[in-house]
């Protein structure tokens, strides 16, 4: 029993804790079908993600609508992520600061979260949204991806830029809506 406990207290913990944790490196590419539309028309936003690092337990891809209080004017046209998307409305409990839900806040606007669980490296997954703005002016869309566990700064994309309601970096995309 002495040898057994020696293995379990000294040898195995030392051996296994030295094994580096897999570090995922997600990224996204976003394309807009147009940069200007007339009120009442729609545009498409296509988002493709890949994980260029090691396998992640979870990877989310988020498309946010900071001017929207609902998702009535958004349609998912295509979707090939492993799990079904989650739809969020304002005043829902959401995670912040890349903590995977350990710190939470209330959402301020609507967003769609696509996710893969697990997120294997090298594979591409896409989602296309059809968006119909309801007001003239500049229509803004945010996008980002986060991999979990969040090992380091490369576990999210973008690495810097605008901060969203989850206190996380996002890419900003705009379409001008004319009367």
């Amino acid at each position: 029993m002495g040898a057994y406990f020696a293995l379990n207290f000294a040898v195995f913990p030392q051996t296994y804790q030295d094994v580096p944790v897999a570090a995922p490196q997600p990224s996204i590419e976003v394309t807009l079908s147009t940069s200007q539309i007339r009120l009442g028309e729609s545009f498409e936003l296509s988002i493709t993600t890949t994980n260029n690092g090691e396998e992640a337990d979870l990877q989310t891809v988020t498309v946010e609508f900071p001017q929207n209080q609902n998702l009535d004017n958004i349609q998912i046209k295509s979707y090939d992520f492993l799990q079904s998307p989650k739809l969020f409305l304002p005043e829902q409990q959401i995670g912040t600061d890349y903590t995977g839900g350990q710190t939470i806040t209330q959402s301020k606007y609507s967003f769609i979260e696509a996710y893969n669980r697990p997120a294997k490296p090298g594979l591409a997954h896409s989602m296309t949204l059809q968006i119909t703005p309801t007001q003239t002016g500049v229509f803004t869309v945010y996008s980002k991806t986060v991999a979990m566990p969040h090992i380091n700064n490369l576990s999210h994309f973008p690495l810097d830029g605008t901060i969203d309601h989850q206190n996380e970096f996002v890419l900003e995309h705009t379409v001008e809506v004319i009367p």
Binding site: N8, F9, F12, P13, Y16, Q17, V19, V21, A22, E55, A56, D57, L58, T99, G100, G101, Q102, P118, M148, P149
Partner: peptide
């Protein structure tokens, strides 16, 4: 800690001296 499948063994062996 936030448990993720890939962190299970790390956290388990970190717990050994604390609880075992």
């Amino acid at each position: 800690k936030l448990m993720w499948p890939s962190l299970t063994s790390q956290i388990y062996f970190e717990l050994v001296p604390l609880v075992a």
